[in-house]
Every structure is written in structure tokens, then in C-alpha cells.
Simulated scan of single mutants.
Amino acid sequence: MATLHSVGRKILTYISPRVKEQSAYFKITRDISEAQFYLGNRFQELYLWQEVADRDMEVSRIENLLYGCFFHDDEEAMVEADREYMARK
């Protein structure tokens, strides 16, 4: 019989690998957006792009999220832009 275990008072939940991957893309996109558009911090931007390369992430997917969304804090807009990109791929 399978049971759900809890750690303290928090119930553990399953997060699919696809959702984890999408979340990682959204996070790095938001970080790059902040460094590039809001802070104008070229050093931080280059550091983040190097992280993209080190993690072997798709540059075109991140570029689509950067320039395909007006507001990077709008989760629904990010999901829609990513969904459209993945459908074209």
C-alpha cells in the first residue's frame, strides 16, 4: 500500500521533469532580463549566459522567452510563449 509521507507538516508533491525544466528556463530568463534590461549589468549578463552554456540549455528557447514576452513576471505569458515555441520546434 502506497502512502504519502510528509516532512514536518509539508506534504511532498511530485513535480514532473518537464515542469522542472520549464521552471529553470523561466528563472534564467528572468535573471538575464533583469541584468540586461533593468540593471544594464553587462558582467552579470555574461555570467548568466555562461551559466546557460554550462547547463547546456537552448539559447533560442531563452531568446524566445526574452523577446516573446513583454512582462517576464507574468507566468501565464511565459507559459504561452514557451508552449508556442515548443510547438514550432
Rank of each mutant, 00 (worst) to 15 (best):
F71H: 08
A35H: 08
V52Q: 03
L66D: 09
I15E: 12
N41M: 13
T3C: 09
S6L: 10
V52T: 05
M57A: 07
Y38V: 15
R18G: 06
R83H: 13
E80T: 12
G40W: 13
A81T: 06
Y25G: 01
D56G: 02
E63W: 02
L46S: 14
F70E: 11
L48Y: 05
K89N: 05
R61D: 03
S33Q: 02
M57Y: 11
Y25N: 04
Y38N: 14
S6H: 10
F71T: 01
E45H: 06
A87E: 06
D73K: 02
E34C: 05
L48I: 10
I32G: 08
R88G: 11
L66K: 05
Q50V: 10
D56I: 14
P17V: 07
L12K: 10
Q36G: 04
G40L: 12
M86Q: 11
Y14M: 06
I62Y: 04
A87V: 03
L65E: 00
R83L: 12
I15T: 09
E21S: 14
A24K: 08
A77H: 06
S23V: 00
I62E: 01
D74C: 08
I15G: 04
V59S: 00
R18H: 11
S23D: 11
Y38E: 15
N64P: 00
M86N: 07
L12E: 10
R30F: 03
N41V: 07
L65P: 01
I62G: 05
R30H: 02
S23A: 14
I11T: 12
V52K: 10
H5L: 08
Y14Q: 12
R42P: 06
M78R: 09
R83S: 13
L4Y: 10
G8C: 09
D54L: 14
K27C: 07
E34M: 08
Q22R: 13
Q22D: 15
C69Y: 05
E45W: 02
K89F: 01
G40D: 13
M1F: 09
T29G: 08
K10A: 13
R88Y: 03
S33T: 09
D82K: 05
T3V: 08
M86S: 10
K27Y: 00
D31P: 00
V7K: 12
T13C: 03
A81S: 09
E76V: 13
G68V: 03
Y67E: 07
E84N: 11
E58G: 01
E21Y: 13
Y67G: 04
R18P: 02
A87K: 09
R9P: 04
I28P: 02
A2F: 03
A87Y: 01
A24P: 00
W49S: 12
R55E: 11
K10N: 10
Q22W: 01
L65T: 01
K27W: 00
